[in-house]
């Protein structure tokens, strides 16, 4: 076996690779918060909403969780184009990611809401807190703190899933890799580098999200114990 690696493309395609990394980060960062908000809203709707809302949310969650992201992306991108709504590939990618992550984080947050000890809610009732106060200052922070490790994993999976967005011509890291590969014919070398970059991105995202959790959850920061 005398395969000679050739990483000279790193020099000549530097700006393309950097812009690919940027786009991957941008897609991730833009989609995380709306996805989480949508997921939380769906979890609340499924747990406490009226009957019709519960059914609607369940259908949404099951439909998204049982079909591949790539089909959802194609459906949105090509489907909306036929309807005459040209939203552009980047927007289609972000919308698909938000809808997809929303369904997954809804299930995670639902588990979080259900895991809050009953005594917490009873205590809040005894303090004459309103329904709204109980939700914002008792339920939401505790639920989020209980499940944030699962949320972190989910967001990292979402970052990795952005890699198929090149299928609708959003040239993120994987798409850039394909371009470089088709010019240099060094597919193996190129994708090894891309893989390493994704590993680095995943590690960075994990660190950032855990850091954000430390900032967001005062109790966790001060006591350093699991809830």
């Amino acid at each position: 076996m005398d395969y000679v690696f050739d990483f000279s493309f790193l020099e000549s395609f530097r700006s393309e690779i950097i812009s690919g990394v940027r786009l991957t980060i941008l897609l991730t960062v833009v989609s995380i918060l709306p996805g989480f908000a949508l997921g939380t809203a769906c979890a609340v709707g499924r747990l406490y909403g009226p009957r019709w809302l519960q059914t609607a949310v369940t259908i949404y969650i099951e439909a998204i969780r049982n079909t591949p992201l790539i089909i959802q992306v194609f459906w949105l991108f090509f489907g909306l184009a036929v309807l005459g709504a040209r939203i552009g590939p980047f927007n289609a990618a972000v919308i698909a990611l938000v809808i997809n992550t929303g369904a997954y984080s809804a299930e995670i947050m639902r588990a979080g809401f259900q895991a809050i000890p009953k005594g917490q809610l009873e205590a809040a009732n005894c303090l004459a807190m309103t329904r709204r106060q109980i939700f914002w200052s008792i339920q939401l922070p505790q639920a989020a703190e209980l499940v944030y490790p699962a949320l972190v994993s989910q967001f990292i999976l979402m970052m990795l899933a952005t890699s198929i967005m090149s299928q609708i011509s959003v040239e993120e890291l994987t798409g850039v890799g394909y371009q470089v590969q088709s010019i240099t014919f060094r597919g193996f070398d190129v994708y090894l580098v891309i893989a390493v970059l994704y590993l680095a991105l995943a590690t960075m995202l994990r660190l950032c999200l855990h850091g954000a959790a430390q900032l967001a959850f005062t109790r966790l920061r001060k006591l350093r114990t699991p809830l």
Binding site: M1, Y3, I156, L160, A161, T162, S163, I164, T174, G177, Y178, Q181, G187, F188, V190, Y191, L192, I194, A195, Y198, L199, A202, T203
Partner: peptide, 22 residues
């Protein structure tokens, strides 16, 4: 950790091009 940190499409590409160099 390696496999979980790399997107599946990239794994597919690495394998696809990796097998061909042999």
């Amino acid at each position: 950790q390696f496999v979980q940190g790399i997107p599946l499409p990239v794994i597919m590409f690495v394998v696809y091009f990796g097998v061909s160099i042999y």
